[in-house]
């Protein structure tokens, strides 16, 4: 498998805090790659660097062989890198359907937006199709702000998908979501992966990560510690040390990691 998206030796400091310190990561085409690590190890910052929301102090980000370091978020998205946020972000005062339509055309110039209507029949169809896929089609006309937390997560996933990106970065897709929905989300991701979509997933729920990921990178103190298959990572002593040293992970999470 070829590399689709990669970060190499990325560093970034906020004030005195070195959030990323020479971190590298590789996402292969067609894989589901997991990114785990104790809180504060720099996972979300790495996401932000890779999607253009934060400029790195050093290092580079490459997508399909093209250097996209420091590109604006809209440019990164246009090229085909979609993402969700840890704290779900939807357009609260627009309808669920309108939320979907915002993302339907990722390569269109703003000038074109002036002269065309909100949606073409094809876009509408695609939007409804993806809403259907995540099970929100019946809520299409509702104001998105009235959705429940879990529904918002699904909507965010759906509107990233409707743009048909090549790789999707998911920031804690299972965070704060009930068990049934976690399984639903896992199934959706696996189903999409089978159709060829690439995923990079940040997640604290180890069971979730171990179940769906082909390859896992463990981050610690702003750098990549270990990369391997879920099985390799689970038995690596350095990983356990990192989690124990981090001190802010719950026992269950450690246990999960050890037992998987």
């Amino acid at each position: 498998m070829t590399t689709l998206l990669s970060a190499s030796n990325v560093s970034r400091a906020f004030g005195g805090v070195q959030a990323l310190n020479g971190c590298s990561l590789e996402v292969r085409r067609g894989s589901i790659t997991g990114l785990i690590g104790p809180n504060g190890s720099g996972k979300t910052t790495l996401f932000n660097v890779m999607t253009g929301y934060v400029k790195p102090d050093a290092g580079s980000v490459t997508f399909e062989g093209q250097n996209i370091t420091g590109a604006r978020p809209n440019k990164v998205f246009e090229l085909g890198v979609g993402r969700t946020f840890q704290l779900t972000r939807i357009f609260a005062r627009m309808t669920v359907l309108e939320n979907m339509l915002v993302a339907t055309q990722r390569e269109e110039s703003w000038l074109r937006g002036l002269t065309r209507s909100k949606s073409s029949p094809r876009e509408l169809e695609a939007a409804m199709e993806w809403l259907n896929f995540v099970g929100l089609a019946h809520l299409a006309k509702l104001e998105a702000g009235s959705l429940s937390y879990g529904q918002r997560k699904l909507l965010e996933l759906a509107y990233v998908l409707v743009a048909n990106p090549d790789v999707i970065l998911l920031d804690e897709p299972a965070g704060g979501v009930n068990l049934t929905l976690i399984n639903v989300i896992a199934e959706k991701i696996q189903a999409l992966n089978e159709q060829g979509k690439t995923f990079l997933v940040v997640e604290h729920n180890m069971e979730f990560v171990m179940k769906i990921c082909h390859q896992v990178t463990v981050m610690h103190q702003g750098t990549d510690l270990v990369t391997g298959t879920p099985g390799e990572v689970r038995t690596n002593p350095a990983v356990l040390d990192a989690y124990l040293g981090g001190g802010d992970e719950t026992d269950e999470e450690l246990e999960e990691l050890a037992n998987g």
């Binding site: 915002v102 269109e108 937006g113």
Partner: peptide, 18 residues
Amino acid sequence: LQLLAIRDDEDRALGLGV
């Protein structure tokens, strides 16, 4: 639609190619 998206969450809109 893009203006409305900016009203609700400008950074998110940016991240969706607006």
